[in-house]
Simulated assay, not measured.
Amino acid sequence: MPQLSLLKSPAAVQAAMDEFSHLGRVAFLKRYGFGKSKDYMVRNPRTGEPCDSKAIVGVAFGKQFPNQGALAAEDFSGGEMTVVPLLQTLGFVVMRVGEDWTEAEVQSTVTDYFEMLRLEAAGVAYNKSGHNETLRKQLRGRSKASVELKHQNISAVLNGMGLPFIQGYKPRGNSQLLLRKVVQDYVFRHSAEVSKIVDGLEEVKSPAQKSYSAVLVESPVMEERQRLVASTRSRPRLPRKFDYAARDEANRKLGRLGEDWVIGYEQHRLTLIGHPELFQSLEWISDTQGDGAGYDILSFESDVLHRYIEVKTTNGGIASPFIVSHNELEFSAEAGEQFYLYRVFQLSGEPKLFILRGDLSSQLYLKPLDYRASFREHFK
């Protein structure tokens, strides 16, 4: 232990952390014979990267005293009584592994997330890794992966509020209560900014991509239901202008562009299956008869079987929620395997498509949104 007390050079500690960053965690620990820290990490002030505290101290000793070399893991004990106060005395930030994020950290992360979402809505290119690196310098030694997870948690909160989220950060639940609170507060305090984001993502543009090759992708799978922990905080009541799925549904111009795109896709598909002549009999039902049929386009599966297509369109990503009417749900059950829901997403950029076939009630989590009110009860 007396050897450890001789370490008094912040520059030596920084040199050890620089080597840690250069080699990577696994290679650094292997080179010097240390295991991963179970309790404490020290933050590299230059990169924001968390480093294994005991290994850094052992290697730093060798940086300060090159003639003696680095201390081995068995030469000293790590932890709260030795390594932690030494590093803190030398001016470094030490954090406990798995320590909850502070409110300041969460607010910085949420602000950064909305900045990226604003750029995405404006169609401005940005670098997620660059944002991650810059943000970590404001945090308490969080890793790149932990910041990415927090961004995914934010996506999950926004998705639960019916709002758009960054497409590169797939929603992941189990976020801390503080994060949900900060996201909700941000939405209400910056309502004008959020409205502009939604407007930007909903802006109706003709699809940039004209080719129908490779546009069909696998549909998302139904995730396992998660039991939510009851919260004393009431569910946020968002103004209708923030309801992204409802605004998609109400945007008739967006819907018509999506249906028009699907008609082009159907011409491509029918040609591929060897029935280009069937395209002449395709009917745009919502255009010729209006809404209410339970589907938008009458196409063909073969020369004897129809394909009833309901189109749902968004400028958002594959996981964007959408609205299914009671009529459409009933028709999907009645038509069975001849019913196809075409979900067109990323319409204004490079449109993609996934298809749900048959009864929708077995393929989606459905949540009732509205009720028809009257003073007389009607039965089927």
Rank of each mutant, 00 (worst) to 15 (best):
E259V: 05
E259G: 03
E259I: 04
E259D: 06
D260Q: 14
D260R: 10
D260W: 09
W261G: 01
W261T: 00
W261R: 00
W261P: 00
W261M: 05
W261V: 03
W261Q: 01
V262K: 05
I263F: 12
I263W: 06
G264P: 06
Y265H: 11
E266D: 11
E266Y: 07
E266W: 11
Q267I: 05
H268C: 12
H268G: 08
H268A: 12
R269L: 06
R269Y: 10
R269I: 09
L270T: 01
L270C: 07
T271W: 08
T271N: 09
L272S: 15
L272V: 14
I273W: 12
I273E: 13
G274T: 06
H275Y: 11
H275R: 14
H275W: 10
H275F: 11
P276G: 00
E277A: 14
E277N: 11
L278Y: 07
L278G: 01
L278H: 03
L278W: 04
F279Y: 11
Q280A: 15
Q280V: 14
S281K: 11
S281P: 01
S281D: 10
S281C: 12
L282A: 04
L282I: 10
L282C: 09
L282G: 03
E283C: 05
E283Y: 01
E283N: 10
W284E: 04
I285P: 01
I285F: 07
S286Q: 04
S286L: 02
S286Y: 02
D287M: 13
D287G: 06
D287H: 13
T288D: 08
T288I: 15
T288A: 14
T288C: 14
Q289N: 12
Q289S: 07
Q289T: 12
G290I: 01
